[in-house]
């Protein structure tokens, strides 16, 4: 699929078919994620591929409830994680991205640079999945500490984000984007 088409037609998918995903397809998607650039080529991302339905359910239960019309309801991603055959949980090994060779933080963002690098890989992953006919939705609103316990993630790693991966059951909706002149300025902030 053409890159611009992939970028413009990718949607967040919250309803999946149970159709399986074979290992070569999954490997192509993870390979794409792994080709993302990273701070000093530190590649701090780690991917946990969860196929086991019981573990998927446990991880889904760490998702935050969302408020709809003054009522707290289950996040739609919870059901998506149960439906899709694969859940990819992305973790970051801390202490690499954003640090100078002497071990001191290199920027005013400190340790949080791992959030940046993880997202570079995640964007590749979602685009690659879409090009192969598979859906994703990036989920960040969950209890990462609990998820780390369930997945037995070592201390040095943080659970950052996750996505179900599977055949879309419904088309995703287009989230309206801000206009170009609402997010783009020339030479100085505020200049259009």
């Amino acid at each position: 699929m053409d890159i611009f088409e992939a970028i413009k037609t990718r949607r967040s998918i919250r309803h999946y078919k149970p159709d399986p995903i074979d290992d070569p397809t999954l490997a192509r998607i993870l390979e794409a994620a792994n080709w993302a650039p990273s701070w000093g080529n530190t590649q701090s991302w780690r991917f946990i591929v969860v196929r086991d339905p019981a573990i998927r359910q446990q991880v889904a239960d760490t998702l935050r409830l969302v408020r709809v019309d003054n009522e707290w309801v289950e996040n739609a991603a919870n059901q998506a994680i149960r439906q899709a055959p694969v859940l990819v949980v992305v973790c970051a090994e801390e202490g690499h991205a954003g640090y100078a060779p002497d071990g001191a933080p290199a920027t005013d963002k400190g340790e949080y640079w791992y959030m940046f690098d993880i997202a570079l890989a995640m964007e590749n992953l979602t685009l690659a999945a879409h090009a192969l006919g598979l859906g994703t939705v990036i989920v960040g609103g969950f209890d990462a500490i609990k998820a780390a316990q369930i997945l037995e993630v070592p201390q040095a790693c943080r659970v950052v984000t996750m996505t179900p991966l599977g055949v879309p059951e419904r088309q995703g909706q287009v989230s309206p984007r801000k206009k170009p002149n609402e997010v783009t300025y020339y030479d100085k902030y505020g200049k259009c």
Partner: peptide, 16 residues
């Protein structure tokens, strides 16, 4: 979340 502000994450999605 325990990550605080996610601006680094979302800025990277657009950057990629």
């Amino acid at each position: 979340t325990d990550k605080g502000d996610w601006f680094m994450h979302d800025a990277a999605l657009a950057t990629q």
